[in-house]
Amino acid sequence: MTGYEDGVPGYLTFRVIPQEGPVAAFAEQEAWQARELYPDLNGLALAEFFYAKELDSGGWALSKHLSDAPQGARDSLGHHFRMRAARARDEGDERAHAEWTAAALRMDREVIDEVRVRGERFRIVRASRFLRTGPDGPEPPRPSDPDPAEAGEAHTLPSRIEGHVIDPRLGTGLADGLLRLDLLRFLGAVPGAPAGLREDALDAAERCPGGVLLPAVFMISERVDGRWQAFHPGASDDTPQGARDGLTTWLRVMAPFTLVMTDEDRAAYARAADLLDEQRCDDLVVDGRWFRVSRVERLVRLGPDGPEGPRPHDFDPDPPVAVQNERSADGGRWRAGDDGDGDDEDDEDLPNPVVEQQVRELQVLWEQELARRAAARERRADRRRGARGRTGPAEG
C-alpha cells in the first residue's frame, strides 16, 4: 500500500491511534454513543480566546486564562509579560526586564494578536464552541468526563487547559478524529448573528483548513419557549461541577438580587440549589425553569502558520486598557443616566442611596453564600475524620 503521509502538510494531519486502558476505551465508547444520541452539531455565537506560546519542539502551548473576547486574552498576555519582567528584574537581567516591560506597555495600547519578545512567539488563539443536541436537548456530561470536585469547590481545581499543546501530530481516538472532521466542515451561523460571521467562517475554512480539539468544557443551558439556549452565553467551566457551582451561586445570590422575588420564591430557589449540591444532577427544574449542565466541544482551526487568531467580526467591545483609561479621563467619570452629551459638568459625584443599598444587599447575599460553603467544607471534613477513625487500627 502506498503511503501519502509525507506529502500532507502538518496542519492537515489526522493521527488516529488505539485508545489504551479501560478509561480511555470507555471514553471512546461514549463518544461513539454520543454521535447516535446527539447527532446534531450547533455552533455557539461566542468563541473562546487564549494566548499561546509557540514551542521549539512544535505546536503551541495554551495559557489557562480564557476570555469570551479577544481583548481579554490580550490583557492576560500583557499581564504575563509583566510577570516575566518582574522575574527578570529579580534575577538582575536589566535588558530582559526592559524588553518584557516594553512588550507589556505595547499590549496596553495596541490591538495585537501576535508578538515576538526575546525570541519567543506569542499569539491570541481562537477556539470555536459547539453543542451536540438530540431529541431530548443538548448533550449532558458523560460519565467519563473528569468531575472530581466537591460541591462549591470546583474553583479550587487546577486548570485543565494550562499548557495544553495544540499540535495535530498528537494522536487521537477514532471518534474524536471523526468529530474533528465534522467540526471542520461546520460553517453554519447562529440564527440572528451578523452577516459578517458567515463570511468570516468561510474565510477561516480556506485559511485554516486543519484543526485540533480541546478538552470539552461545560455550561448551563435553559429551555425557553420550547427551545434550548445558553443561560450565560460566554461562560463555561472545566468540569460539570464548575457549571453546577455557577448555577447554585446564581440561585442563591444573583437571582434574589436581580429578580423580584417573594420569601417563598427565595426559599424555593435555595432548596433547588441544595438539591443540585446534594445530588450533583445535570437537570434541574425550579419555578417552571428547566436548566441543564451541557457538554461543549471546542475546536481550534490550524493553517500553515499555526492556530487561527481572532476573526474580524468576533465580539470584541473593549479597547486596550490604556485607551480605556484615556477615554475615561477625557470624558470624565461615567454615571448611570449619563447620556454622553457632555452637558453634565455641573453634576457632582454624590452618594446614591439606592445604589449603596443594592451594594449592601449583594454583599450580604454573597457573605451568606461564603459562610454556607465554609460550613459545608467543615461538615465534609468532619465526615472524613469520622471515617478515618472508624477504619483505623483496633487497639488491643
Rank of each mutant, 00 (worst) to 15 (best):
A267L: 10
G137Q: 13
G309F: 05
M219G: 06
D283H: 13
L350K: 09
V165D: 05
L157F: 11
A127E: 05
G72P: 07
V115G: 05
E54V: 05
L157Y: 08
M219Q: 09
R132S: 15
P148Q: 09
R129K: 09
W228R: 08
A205L: 09
R373E: 01
D265K: 04
G234P: 13
Q363M: 03
L12E: 14
A102I: 00
Y4D: 11
G137M: 13
R198P: 01
R169M: 07
R123E: 07
P351W: 04
F49K: 14
E369K: 04
R207L: 01
E36Y: 00
A149L: 11
R207M: 00
P138L: 06
G306M: 15
K53W: 02
G10A: 15
G163P: 02
T2M: 04
G59N: 12
A235M: 14
M261N: 01
D237C: 06
P135S: 10
P240F: 08
R380S: 06
R169T: 11
W290A: 14
R379F: 02
L12C: 10
D287Y: 03
D136C: 10
Q358A: 05
G226K: 02
D40Q: 15
D176N: 15
T13Q: 15
E91F: 08
P320V: 02
V253C: 11
D68G: 06
M219F: 00
R384A: 04
L276I: 03
T248D: 10
A102K: 11
A127Q: 04
V217E: 11
G392V: 00
L44W: 08
R335K: 12
A149P: 14
L275N: 00
P310W: 00
R169E: 13
D225A: 15
A34D: 14
V323P: 00
R295C: 08
